[in-house]
Design a protein around this nucleic acid. Structure first.
Lengths: 242, 242
DNA sequence: CTTATAATTATGTATGTACAAATAATTGAT
DNA sequence: ATCAATTATTTGTACATACATAATTATAAG
C-alpha cells in the first residue's frame, strides 16, 4: 500500500489517518463493502497507536462511511461515495426555483436590545444593540410568511443595505461572511393574534414555525431567524443523504 | 451533583457517562450555553478515566450537543435542547437520543393494492400488492405521531419482521438494503377527524405533516412514508451545511 | 452425525500517563 | 495607561497496555 503517515507533519496523526482512510474508501477496490485491514495491523503498518487509528475510524463510523462488526471487521458502507447534497437556499432563491413571484409586504429594520435568550445565543452583553429585521413576504395578494431575523454585531450590517436582495448574498458581498451551517427546528403551531394578523389568517390555524440558527465557517453565530409560514400555502422541502 | 456511575453495571462506563451527560444537558442549569465541569475534574468525580469520559463527550460533540473550546471549556451548544446532527435517523433512534421512552400504540401491517399515486411512484402495476405499515407512537401516555409507510415489493419484506426494531436497521439487516436518500416535504396542516382520533387531539389543531420519499443507493424507490406529528409535542430538526 | 466445547480473531471497553496547544487572566515593563 | 510577556487552565494529541466480548471456525465428545 502506498498510503503512509508523516510523523513530522504538524497535522495531527489521527487527522492524517482520517484523510488516508477517506482516500481508501474512495478507492475502487474498497467500494463494494470490502473490509479494511484490521485495526491492530493497520495501526502497526501506519506506525501509529491503535488508539489513534481508532479515533480516525470512529469519526468515519459516526459519519456512516464505515461499519464495524465484531469479529468480522470494519467495512465500507454500501453506496457511500457520499456527496453531501444538502439544501441551503435563501427564501427568494427557493421561491424563484418554483417560479413564484415574491412580494415584500413589509420590511422593517430596527436596532434593539437583545433579550436574555438572544444575548446568550450571540454571547454578547444585553446592553449591546443588535439589528432586528422583520419582513412579511408572499405572493402578490397573499402574504404567506413572516420572518424575524436578529444579526450578531460582528456581521457589520448597518441597516441601510438593500434587503430586497437575497440575504445570504448581502452577507457574502457586503459583509464578507459566508454562512455555512444552519440548525433548524421545525414545528407546527397555532397562529397567535400577532401572527394571524401579519399573515391575514385566522387565529389558531396551523402555522409552520421554523427556527434557524445560522453560523459562519468558524462556527460563530451570525443570525437568529424565526419564520412563520402560513400552513396551507407553504411546503418545506428537505433533501438529505447519508 | 447527584449524578454518578455504576462500575458494577454491565453497561459500559462511557455509555453511562454519555447518558449522564445528556441528562446534564437537558437540565435547566446547563440549558443556556453554560460550560460543563472540566474533563479532568469530572472524570475524577465520576471515578472514570479521562479517556473514557472523553469518549462520551466526543459523541455528543459529534452530535452537536456540546462544543469544546480550549481553555474555555466544554459548553452546551446553543439552542440545543433537542438538536442533533446527522439527520437521517429513524424515529426510534431520534427519540432514544433524546432519552424519551417510546411506546408503540398501534402497529398494523397489511397488504394492499396501491392507488394510482402509489403505483406511479413505485412504478408498478396497480394489481400488485404492496406492504402497508401503520403505526402510532409516542410517549407512554401521549401518542404524538401517526405514520403510514408503503414499501416497494422489491424490498422483500414479509410483514412478519419485528417492526419494533428501528426500520432502517430492518432494511439493512433483513433486506440488505441501505436507504440513502430521502426527499422530504414538510408542512403544517389542521388535523382531520381521522388524525385527530389517532393522536387524541382536537379536530383542526395544528399537525406537522411530513412526506418522505426514501430511495436506495441506486436511487430506486424503497418507501413512501407519511408522518403526522401532533403539533405541540414535536419539533423537527434539520442540520444542513454547504 | 450431531452437538457441545474450545480456540481464534476481530472489535469493544477501560486505564494511566505524558506532553502539546490555545487562550484567558495576570503580571510586568515602558 | 498601554502593550508585551508570562502563567495558568483546559482541551487536544498520542502512546502502551490489558482484558472483555461477539462471532466464526475448528475440535472433541456423545
Amino acid at each position: 500500500m502506498k498510503y503512509s503517515i508523516d510523523h513530522k507533519s504538524p497535522i495531527p496523526l489521527h487527522i492524517q489517518a482520517e484523510t488516508l482512510l477517506r482516500e481508501l474508501i474512495e478507492a475502487e477496490e474498497y467500494q463494494n463493502g470490502k473490509t479494511i485491514p484490521n485495526e491492530v495491523d493497520l495501526a502497526k503498518q501506519l506506525a501509529i497507536s491503535r488508539t489513534t487509528l481508532r479515533q480516525a475510524i470512529n469519526k468515519l463510523v459516526f459519519e456512516g462511511l464505515l461499519i464495524r462488526k465484531k469479529r468480522f471487521g470494519t467495512k465500507v458502507a454500501n453506496g457511500s461515495v457520499s456527496s453531501r447534497s444538502n439544501n441551503w437556499l435563501s427564501f427568494s432563491q427557493e421561491m424563484k426555483l418554483r417560479g413564484i413571484p415574491i412580494k415584500n409586504f413589509e420590511l422593517h429594520v430596527t436596532w434593539v436590545y437583545p433579550d436574555e435568550m438572544l444575548a446568550n445565543f450571540f454571547e454578547i452583553k444585553s446592553d449591546r444593540k443588535i439589528l432586528k429585521m422583520e419582513r412579511v413576504r408572499g405572493k402578490p395578494h397573499e402574504p404567506f410568511v413572516y420572518f424575524v431575523s436578529y444579526f450578531h454585531p460582528r456581521v457589520g450590517l448597518t441597516g441601510d443595505e438593500d434587503f430586497k436582495r437575497p440575504l445570504y448574498e448581502i452577507l457574502e458581498h457586503d459583509c464578507s461572511i459566508i454562512a455555512t451551517l444552519s440548525k433548524e427546528e421545525i414545528s407546527a403551531i397555532p397562529a397567535d393574534e400577532f401572527i394571524a394578523d401579519k399573515l391575514k389568517m385566522e387565529f389558531g390555524n396551523p402555522v409552520l414555525f421554523r427556527k434557524r440558527l445560522v453560523f459562519d465557517q468558524a462556527d460563530r453565530q451570525i443570525e437568529y431567524n424565526l419564520g412563520y409560514y402560513k400552513g396551507d400555502s407553504f411546503v418545506y422541502t428537505v433533501e438529505s443523504s447519508r
